[in-house]
């Protein structure tokens, strides 16, 4: 999405809750009353971000997981952030706000 491609910060909205189940990560959007299931590297990335990893550090881990050069991993990472934004799992982070 334009936002991430321009390098602006994104954040998880305050109305999301998530848990780790066997084989999947469940993200519940309380506002939309929807659940999203994340698996594989997508779930791994979500977890790394919740653990406070920066974009660059998460990228490094993703590149190791995908066994590919960081540049190639970065395309995948940006694509993923884009899709999360589309699904409402991320939103634009504006200064001075702390989620809804």
């Amino acid at each position: 999405m334009t936002l991430t491609r321009q390098g602006a910060a994104v954040r998880s909205p305050a109305h999301l809750r998530w848990l780790q189940d066997a084989g999947q990560l469940l993200v519940v959007d309380e506002k939309a009353r929807r659940a999203h299931v994340l698996r594989g590297h997508e779930a791994a990335l979500w977890t790394w971000f919740t653990l406070g990893y920066s974009y660059d550090k998460a990228l490094h881990l993703l590149a190791a997981a995908l066994k590919c050069p960081p540049a190639q991993a970065e395309a995948a990472l940006r694509e993923l952030l884009h899709s999360w934004q589309t699904l409402g799992l991320l939103e634009e982070a504006r200064d001075g706000e702390s989620g809804d």
């Binding site: 084989g23 779930a43 790394w48 881990l61």
Partner: peptide
């Protein structure tokens, strides 16, 4: 921590893809 954070998430993802718990 970085090694463990990586190893657990990576292993879980790869194992699930291989049908291994």
């Amino acid at each position: 921590p970085r090694v463990v954070h990586f190893a657990v998430e990576y292993a879980a993802a790869r194992a699930a893809a291989a049908g291994i718990t």
